[in-house]
């Protein structure tokens, strides 16, 4: 099963597209206070000892590029939800 998600557009902007075999997310935070939450998402994946599950790149002006391996897509969205960066999750 896959997940579909909704987020608060006042807080952030989230774009998703295909990058080779992976899925790429471009996240722009409208509120700097949310940085801490996205760092926690990164830390979650850094602790699991898989090096290529997500690739996390920081760009200026609170823009984040995250390349997510297909088999970690659901986990990534769930972690965004856990940090309240995504406000609604639906299994489809």
């Amino acid at each position: 099963m896959n997940v579909e998600y909704k987020y608060d557009e006042n807080l952030l902007e989230l774009k998703e597209f295909v990058n080779g075999d992976d899925i790429e997310f471009l996240i722009t935070l409208h509120d700097s206070k949310l940085k801490e939450k996205i760092v926690k998402v990164r830390e979650f994946f850094e602790e699991n000892r898989v090096l290529t599950d997500i690739h996390y790149y920081i760009h200026p002006n609170n823009r984040y590029q995250v390349i997510v391996r297909k088999d970690y897509y659901n986990e990534f969205i769930i972690q965004l939800f856990r940090q309240q960066l995504v406000k609604e999750l639906i299994w489809v």
């Binding site: 080779g20 090096l51 290529t52 690739h55 996390y56 790149y57 390349i67």
Partner: peptide, 13 residues
């Protein structure tokens, strides 16, 4: 070095 190498090479494909 290995994690950052994976990260840079993935960015550059």
């Amino acid at each position: 070095m290995v994690p950052v190498t994976f990260s840079i090479t993935r960015q550059l494909r």
